[in-house]
């Protein structure tokens, strides 16, 4: 796949049958754009158990410098599973506003 972004590619740049020959290019997508809710955190209650990370269907939760678990909002879909599973109620889902 050429190094052009999809918006720059012409029909001539597309590989035969739209085959993707370079792994990992799905990372180019910011798939969290259509989220309607986002997680907010009260880290004072966090026990750093990592349950939210294990349950996240998107795999977008990582530990920050202080060791707290936090979702990458470029990819978080706002499903709320982390908030539901968190044993110490660290995570609160709030409406995304325009």
């Amino acid at each position: 796949m050429p190094k052009k972004t999809e918006a720059e590619m012409t029909w001539k740049d597309i590989e035969v049958g739209c085959i993707v020959t370079e792994p990992g290019n799905a990372a180019q997508y910011k798939t969290g754009a259509w989220r309607s809710q986002r997680p907010t955190y009260t880290f004072s209650r966090c026990i750093k158990c990592g349950i939210c990370q294990m349950y996240c269907p998107e795999g977008c939760i990582t530990q920050n410098k202080e060791g707290f678990f936090e979702a990458n909002l470029d990819y978080c879909k706002g499903c709320g599973i982390c908030a539901k599973e968190c044993p110490t109620r660290v995570i609160n889902m709030v409406e995304e506003e325009e």
């Binding site: 999809e6 590619m9 029909w11 049958g17 085959i19 993707v20």
Partner: peptide, 26 residues
């Protein structure tokens, strides 16, 4: 570009509106 474990490729991919027309025209 066949399916080959030595040289993996992804087939049957997803095309958002930004690239679908180009794919169909090709």
């Amino acid at each position: 570009l066949p399916l080959d474990p030595v040289k993996p490729v992804a087939m049957g991919d997803f095309a958002p509106p930004v690239i679908y027309t180009e794919a169909k025209w090709a």
